[in-house]
Design a protein around this nucleic acid. Structure first.
Lengths: 197, 197
DNA sequence: TGTCGGTATGACTGGGTGGTCACATAAGGG
DNA sequence: CCCTTATGTGACCACCCAGTCATACCGACA
């Protein structure tokens, strides 16, 4: 967590620091991101950074959190379509894509976070995965109870699959991804590979 | 490509270098892997490394290639089960898992390769993806022609989904992954989320 | 005016990196 | 025995890094 000093800053300066950090962490994973470049890019002294944050990791986690909060606010509406799980999923990924278009840097920060292999970040990673699985698990359980979802499937396996595909979709957002392709991918998940009678 | 000098080495020494490099690249992505540590770990001089390889990238690509060749040899049998695409897929992932158990370091090298974000590796990444999509596309086309596969699906989307899930499965091999869970994940893909009549 | 807490600073430390190069060694062929 | 060619070597170079610290600045209050 940032120190109090950081929050005492004039908002303008604070935003400048945040913006510079977002730029750097959007381009490089934690280990390769350079604090030196961040302070140069926003024109403050190296030492000042240590008045605001404990260390590089502290800054990083603050920025990742920020990116995630923004994304959650953006994407959360999808879950308001209660009842129709397929509409929820479609809207969820559509909004994720919109977010990536509107906030490419925040998108990249959040995205790069997931392939951090650093031990220091493992705990945070797991926490994030769990918190996101909760909403999904709830919607899935409801849909199963309502008989809308294939009852022979293992809910955990379903989450695993959607998580994997979601990650890959998000990874490929930067290459462009029209609504049609998105819909086709979701259809694969919805109808399954095997031909129906 | 390694220089001729590398292939002139006594096999024992050559294997020592390979083993050390595999250890390092299994633990760290390309950018964070340390040539210095590799030469220390196999007891040769830094300068010698540059008699064998052009640079760090040259060594890395050689090692990745090696890991992939081994994996292909191990996993390729799956495609001999022509005709039943679901058997092929099941066997493919089962063998991938076996490979990860038998050769954990090679597995990690191959695996880490996919989340390299370095520009220098982009071209290689794309090449690998294409070469692996070919076998899959062939089996899929056959199964579609035979009416075993849902004809309304977009083959490209199908490949996308299987690639994504495969990557995530492989990522999670190190946490253990029993046959049963694997089967359940494949069932999700096979039967689809929507309840059948 | 003095002084005191909070803040800003950037030179510096100690450690790491990939890559180089002048030199050493060894093996053959004349 | 020398000369050439192929290898081996590790000190060294230039660069980058996170993090520290003595010093300076600044506004407020006395």
């Amino acid at each position: 967590m940032p120190k109090q000093t950081f929050f005492n800053l004039e908002p303008e300066k604070r935003q400048g620091i945040i913006a510079a950090a977002v730029r750097e962490f959007a381009e490089h994973p934690f280990e390769q991101a350079s604090l030196t470049k961040i302070v140069e890019s926003c024109g403050i002294a190296k030492g000042s950074m240590y008045q605001y944050f404990e260390d590089k990791l502290d800054l990083y986690l603050y920025i990742v959190d920020l990116a995630y909060e923004q994304k959650k606010a953006y994407v959360g509406r999808a879950f308001s379509l209660e009842g129709d799980i397929f509409a929820v999923l479609s809207e969820y990924y559509r909004l994720s894509y919109q977010f990536a278009l509107d906030h490419p840097l925040l998108h990249q920060v959040a995205n790069k976070f997931w392939d951090s292999r650093s031990e220091a970040l493992r705990a945070e990673l797991e926490k994030g995965r769990l918190s996101r699985s909760r909403d999904f698990a709830r919607v899935l359980a409801e849909a199963m109870a309502a008989g809308k979802v294939n009852p022979q499937l293992d809910p955990e396996a379903v989450f695993f699959v959607y998580h994997a595909v979601g990650k890959e979709l998000i990874d490929h957002f930067h290459q462009g991804c029209n609504d049609e392709f998105l819909q086709q991918v979701l259809d694969v998940l919805k109808y399954g590979l095997q031909a129906r009678d």
